[in-house]
Design a protein around this nucleic acid. Structure first.
Lengths: 207, 207
DNA sequence: GTCTATAATGAGATAGAC
DNA sequence: GTCTATCTCATTATAGAC
């Protein structure tokens, strides 16, 4: 196992970018700013990543890996809310990847985002169909289809909504609670459980 | 009544920009491109609008005026679906104003967008509360609150969703039908009516 | 691997002639 | 009002020394 980089500069660049991009989006962050944040020169930055789009691509790789990990940690027995919380925490860390502007900068990533979206929607759909068969969800397949898509839309865009429509300049981690509540509200009317609070209870935000 | 401009160039610029911006967003459209589309020189474009942000601001004025017009054409007796359709048609014509990037270019417009959002959400909320009092809607005030926000989010972002998550490169006017159906699905479970199709029926998309 | 210095882009903005 | 030509500026990209 060879040590390929002594300094770990590459990793530091990526982590700095993840944070900066989450704050303002890749298009709004200049390479000069990135270099400054990492504490290296622009020339050195260019040595590690020839183009800004390459940084975004590398971050997207990490995003996909993180998704695979969360997905592997959940099955049909995992409580719905535990799942939801895990996904929301993940999304939070990579929220910059949910903005359309990213995919104008790096069009090649768009099919991969679509794949992620397709696979996870399928996962949720299967989960809901299963609940339906258990009699815990009162919804037709058509209802479920619309529901999954609406949940996906709200989950993808609630941060932008808070920023532009509620005037919250800096959406913070605490707002996750708000976002989760919006998602829960989508499912609530279909839940048969007379104790819906049961399936959707104590959300803890780790890390 | 003085004739202030013979040629109507200003109006042509605005209309060309509305269309171009709807396709790709103001940040992606260069001034050179605008001038070309209108069939004038960049210098002349600059004579009419010194900065691109001024074009966006002028378009926002027109947007506000259009909203006021639609709002004035609806009251508590207007069928819900007629209202929804009118709003969707309006949104479609000004859809570029629903992207966050616009408000990075022209931050001054953001409070005005918030006002629009606040006022119209209040309108919808009042409408739903009224339905509830009539016994036609089975939802608590808290439900209504969540519902209105979710509807607003879906209405604001469904186009971007279709583009980036469904891979539909060119979202067309026909997709309005799809968007409307998603919104209806949000309200459906709360409607008491045994004929919910009634309140939400024939949607015609006028030009 | 890292730096300094410089080139190459591309966009918006502007001056001045017609 | 409209054009052509030019300027400024921010940003990305690159070369070459250490």
């Amino acid at each position: 196992m060879r040590v390929e980089e002594k300094s770990g500069t590459r990793a530091r660049i990526l982590e700095a970018c993840r944070i900066l991009f989450n704050e303002r989006g890749p298009a709004e962050v200049t390479t000069a700013e990135i270099a400054l944040a990492v504490g290296i020169s622009e020339g050195n930055l260019h040595y590690h990543f020839r183009r800004k789009a390459q940084i975004v691509a590398a971050l997207f790789d990490a995003f996909e890996a993180a998704i695979a990990e969360v997905a592997s940690g959940s099955d049909a027995n995992t409580p719905l809310d535990h799942d939801l919380t895990a996904w929301f925490n993940l999304m939070w860390e990579w929220r910059f990847l949910y903005a359309a502007s990213v995919y104008r900068l790096s069009p090649g990533l768009q099919p991969r985002l679509k794949t992620i979206s397709d696979e996870n929607q399928a996962r949720i759909r299967a989960r809901l169909e299963s609940l339906r068969r258990q009699g815990r969800l009162d919804a037709s397949s058509a209802d479920i289809e619309r529901l999954v898509v609406n949940a996906w839309i709200v989950a993808s865009y609630w941060i932008d909504y808070l920023r532009t429509r509620q005037g919250i300049a800096h959406v913070e981690r605490e707002h996750l609670r708000w976002g989760l509540a919006q998602i829960r509200a989508l499912f609530a009317p279909y839940l048969v459980d007379n104790a819906p609070a049961r399936s959707f209870e104590p959300a803890t935000f780790g890390c």
